[in-house]
Design a protein around this nucleic acid. Structure first.
Lengths: 207, 207
DNA sequence: GCGGTTCTGTACTGAGTTGTCAAGAAGGGC
DNA sequence: GCCCTTCTTGACAACTCAGTACAGAACCGC
């Protein structure tokens, strides 16, 4: 029996995420968020807990999104595992889109993994962000490692290789393209890096 | 016939670099720089051109430092090239030190490549920084590619592999560890990533 | 349609920010 | 030892920022 909220919480967090990813945390003011979301300051402070609260919740939403889409892109039958890995790698080096159906931002630095950008900007001075960011990374590592195991079962990747080590390495490469992309390199260069990485995957020895 | 400058320009840029790398660009105020360098505001604005000018000059110094030390670590006779590459990789994943004789910062995010941090934080909105950062990257890619070529001549790396592609990939991995390190992963994990990458280098096919 | 509760927008405060300026200090040439 | 030039210092004004408080609007149940 009270006035209902007039905004969509997820939509607001989405807009905030876009802003943070475009301008960084310290480069974004509450007024920027207010303008991007259309919400007044009062509502922002009531619904979230100020700027930092918005960041944490936006990162939480990002984490949930990753946890939903990455496994979906990588999980499946053993036969297609290597192909899925290939496709994932090729897509991932071009950034993380805001939503599944929109292309990543044209500015590659703004398309970089939200968690990566925040973790690198805020560093160890913000343990909450560091942990959330690491959670995002772990979800991806787990999904990739599972896909590697599937490819191994199918005889496409050397069974002696450690799937977790391989997953860490692949994710490190993907995060690296966030940085290399920020230097202004062309998408073609990033694709080339992805292909080089894929070509070096350890194949089974015989046959 | 005028009063000489009482501070060492390089020393000031060094302190500013440390500050920027620790707190990011937007997270660093002119007062922070002033405190870190011991210089007053007036001197800062006279000697450099405000905060942004200090950043550009600090990045210039960083670039010069890279251009001097990275080739020194990687260049040499063909025989030891693979070993040098291995050693470089193992060191690089733990960050870029402020000077050759000091260890990288304990906070891995603050030890990340200066250029990488600034490029990712400021993105395409600051073309000068983007270009300077890319210059830093290019110096490293060139040095690594040259070392790969030396290893190829020595029969330690598959001669069919493209040394430039390999160098891009290796540098992407190193930059990736800047991000993964910022997530809070242990140095041991970063070392393990470096070793995995090294193990996947394409070796010559027959013997 | 009325009351009560919650949401919304805006104005305000105090702290922190950048860039400038003027007055004083310091050193070299003569 | 004096003068001129440059450097240095600290203070200043204008502005932006984060967070708060208050007044008004909207909606639900009855």
């Amino acid at each position: 029996m009270a006035r209902p909220r007039s905004f969509d919480r997820e939509h607001v967090l989405h807009a905030a995420e876009r802003q943070f990813r475009a301008s960084g945390y310290n480069g974004t003011s509450v007024d920027d968020i207010s303008a991007a979301t259309g919400l007044g300051r009062g509502s922002l402070y009531a619904a979230f807990d100020g700027k930092h609260g918005v960041l944490l919740e936006a990162m939480g939403g990002y984490f949930a999104r990753l946890g939903q889409f990455a496994p979906k892109a990588l999980a499946g039958p053993d036969e297609g595992a290597l192909d899925r890995l290939h496709g994932y790698l090729l897509r991932a080096v071009h950034g993380v889109p805001l939503a599944a159906d929109v292309p990543p931002a044209p500015d590659r630095a703004a398309a970089a993994c939200f968690a990566a950008k925040m973790a690198l900007e805020l560093g160890a001075s913000d343990p909450e962000v560091e942990r959330l960011a690491n959670d995002c990374f772990s979800v991806l590592v787990t999904a990739v490692a599972e896909c590697v195991r599937a490819a191994q079962r199918n005889g496409d990747i050397d069974p002696d290789a450690d799937p977790d080590d391989l997953a860490y390495l692949l994710l490190t490469i993907i995060r690296g393209t966030d940085v290399v992309g920020a230097y202004g390199h062309s998408p073609a260069r990033l694709t080339s890096i992805a292909e080089s990485a894929f070509a070096l995957l350890p194949r089974p020895r015989h046959r």
